[in-house]
Design a protein around this nucleic acid. Structure first.
Lengths: 163, 163
DNA sequence: TGGAGATATCTTGACGTCAAGATTAATCCA
DNA sequence: TGGATTAATCTTGACGTCAAGATATCTCCA
């Protein structure tokens, strides 16, 4: 009987006509992600980052040397809009973690690169981040965790296919 | 091989020292919630609501007649800060969906109530919302859905206990 | 070759959120 | 009883996000 059950119980009393089964599943997903995000944000903050800025740096870092991508490349892998990305890059540029350069091959495009400071920051931050994530999922035994991952994969595939 | 797998593959190449297992699980959770939120927001928008305003109205509705709670009561069941709640109530009051009244028993406190319009709005919106949720979870067979719910319940319990 | 349409990025304006602190009222007990 | 403490709500300021549209550049083909 967790907090979500209490919500469902109230709906059952007030609106017995509603089938609130899906609400329980989706509600738990939302709460879990809410808690996880909060905890991970603490790790990011320790490196002067937010979840938003971490994502940009991590995407550049994962791409491999020379750690350069266009905004369009970044957009293709991040679930955000172009205006949001522009804003993120502005902040990171101001902080000296990335640099914008014009693309000699396409005047419409620019190239975003990690600076030396940016590279050092993301390498340290991701190490700590992975440790935080390890701690957060450790509340489940390894076997259950693997099973959960399998199910989430199926769920994500089903949802993403319709979006 | 979904999008999350591609991210893990990149990390493996660039930083083989990292154990990215937990990142896969947490990443899928985040993406699923992101997609679900997007879809549910469309339903809310059809009733002139946002996820934020829906939550307040729904909490008042679930409480039963006379659909009145204090901001403190609302805060206890919603994972937001007091400043955020004040802002939400301001918007809803402006829209005529809730009303603020002073609490005769405690001068520090106020009572938030659904208006007639607010009650009609949330009753219609929650009916549509439940349908949307049903559609969203229908990508999984009922059995897998139930199993997933059981596992999420365990995960949530573990995380919430540490927060 | 030059104009129409496509493409890449940025700008604008409106929200939602949080952390930290301010304000006002109630309570406790010396 | 009255000053200190606690409690409930609101205010402020800084961000992050999105949708819609603006700007600049490229590409294609008549």
């Amino acid at each position: 009987m967790d907090h979500v059950d209490e919500i469902l119980r109230q709906w059952n009393r007030e609106r017995p006509d509603l089938d609130v089964g899906p609400m329980g599943l989706i509600g738990r997903l939302g709460r879990i992600v809410h808690y996880l995000t909060r905890e991970m944000d603490k790790t990011f903050a320790a490196f002067g980052l937010t979840g938003a800025s971490f994502d940009v740096l991590a995407t550049l870092r994962r791409a491999g040397a020379p750690y350069s991508l266009s905004p369009g490349d970044l957009l293709a892998t991040m679930m955000i809009t172009s205006g949001t990305l522009t804003n993120r890059i502005d902040q990171l540029e101001k902080a000296g973690l990335v640099a914008r350069a014009s693309n000699p091959e396409d005047g419409r495009s620019v190239i975003i690169s990690l600076t030396e400071t940016g590279l050092a920051t993301i390498d340290a931050a991701v190490t700590a981040h992975v440790e935080t994530q390890k701690r957060l999922v450790s509340v489940l035994p390894a076997e259950e965790r693997d099973l959960l991952d399998v199910q989430l994969r199926a769920f994500l595939a089903g949802i993403a296919a319709r979006s």
